[in-house]
Simulated assay, not measured.
Amino acid sequence: MSDPTHQAPHPHHYFDADAGPVVRPYAMTRGRTSSTTVHHRLDLIALVVAEPDAGHPAHDQSLSPEHVEIVERCLESSQSIAELAAGLDLPVGVVRVLVGDLVEDSLVHVTRPVPPAELPDVSILREVINGLRAL
């Protein structure tokens, strides 16, 4: 016999009201783990720069809210993949796929930092500074 004082838990008992809607990362990327058109690797320190003619991405109905947020953040200033992932609270892999989509749509472009092997030697820079001081 059931106890009339015992109430069944509310169906939403286990959900946090402040969490808002929860979307799984694979849903944001439609199950993709990489972008099909971005041929270069999107390193954590690769900088994402919004194209000058990106306009107002919020008006583009084909973009997800995450795509729009990435473009808007990069319109203010260029940001690395790692900064975007941290700022959006998304896994880096998801951000890479989303940025790849935006590169394909010509809304952003990615610049890679100069590899350490291509940077000038510190001793050469010191010699240049010393030479300038001697003038």
Rank of each mutant, 00 (worst) to 15 (best):
V23M: 06
R24V: 12
P25S: 07
Y26K: 06
Y26A: 07
Y26T: 06
A27T: 09
A27D: 12
M28W: 10
M28E: 06
M28Q: 13
T29N: 05
R30G: 01
R30F: 03
G31K: 13
R32C: 12
R32H: 15
R32I: 03
T33G: 13
T33R: 14
S34P: 00
S35T: 05
S35Y: 02
T36Y: 13
T37K: 14
V38W: 02
V38C: 07
V38K: 10
V38H: 08
V38F: 04
H39A: 08
H40D: 03
H40A: 08
R41T: 03
R41P: 00
L42P: 01
L42C: 08
L42T: 00
D43I: 01
D43T: 02
D43W: 02
D43K: 01
D43P: 00
L44Q: 00
L44M: 01
I45H: 03
I45V: 02
A46I: 03
L47E: 05
L47N: 06
V48N: 00
V48C: 04
V49D: 10
V49S: 04
A50D: 05
A50N: 04
E51G: 01
E51P: 00
E51K: 09
E51Y: 01
E51D: 05
E51R: 09
P52W: 10
P52M: 11
P52L: 14
P52A: 15
P52E: 11
P52G: 10
A54K: 11
A54M: 15
G55R: 05
G55Y: 12
G55W: 06
H56T: 06
H56N: 15
H56G: 03
P57A: 12
A58T: 11
A58S: 15
A58V: 13
A58D: 09
H59R: 14
H59M: 10
D60W: 08
D60N: 15
Q61D: 08
Q61Y: 12
Q61N: 10
Q61R: 14
Q61K: 15
S64C: 11
S64Y: 09
S64T: 15
S64H: 13
S64G: 15
S64D: 13
P65V: 09
P65M: 14
E66I: 02
H67V: 00
V68Q: 12
E69G: 07
E69W: 10
E69Q: 15
I70W: 11
I70P: 00
V71K: 04
V71Q: 08
V71G: 09
V71A: 04
E72Y: 07
R73H: 07
R73Y: 10
C74R: 07
C74V: 05
C74W: 06
C74P: 10
C74L: 09
C74Q: 09
C74K: 13
L75M: 12
L75I: 12
L75K: 14
L75C: 07
L75H: 07
L75V: 12
E76V: 15
S77E: 11
S77P: 01
S78M: 12
S78E: 11
Q79A: 07
S80G: 00
I81Y: 00
I81C: 00
I81N: 01
I81R: 02
A82H: 01
A82D: 01
A82L: 03
A82M: 02
E83T: 08
E83N: 08
L84G: 08
L84W: 14
L84T: 04
